[in-house]
């Protein structure tokens, strides 16, 4: 059996990649995808714990279902926002979207 640590390690690495992408990528879509990647890393953990945990049961998978649902909704809304921004500012470059400053 592949030990629990292996899955968790994969989750941790994916999460770190997601963090890096979130912080540095300029394209708004990639930023959104980075967030999805981070959520995925969490899902891996949840599912792994659902099989290997101390009180392991199916609830971990159900939690993942909700996470995926929310992530899907978030992706849809995020993309809609990006489209709206693109229409107004002709860019989705994260470093140029600074209207919060004003």
């Amino acid at each position: 059996m592949v030990p629990l640590g292996g899955y968790l390690a994969v989750g941790a690495i994916l999460f770190s990649i997601g963090v890096y992408g979130l912080l540095t990528k300029k394209n708004g879509i990639i930023v959104l995808l980075s967030i999805e990647l981070m959520l995925n890393a969490v899902n891996v953990n949840l599912v792994a714990f659902s099989r290997f945990g101390i009180a392991a049961n199916i609830t971990g998978q159900i939690f993942s279902v909700f996470t995926i649902t929310v992530a899907a909704a978030e992706a849809a809304i995020g993309l809609a926002i990006l489209v709206a921004i693109f229409r107004n500012k002709a860019t989705i470059n994260a470093s140029e979207i600074d209207i919060m400053k004003r």
Partner: peptide
């Protein structure tokens, strides 16, 4: 610090 860029804020958070 207050440059309005969401990534800068996230960086500070992280």
């Amino acid at each position: 610090l207050q440059n309005g860029q969401v990534q800068a804020y996230s960086l500070v958070t992280i």
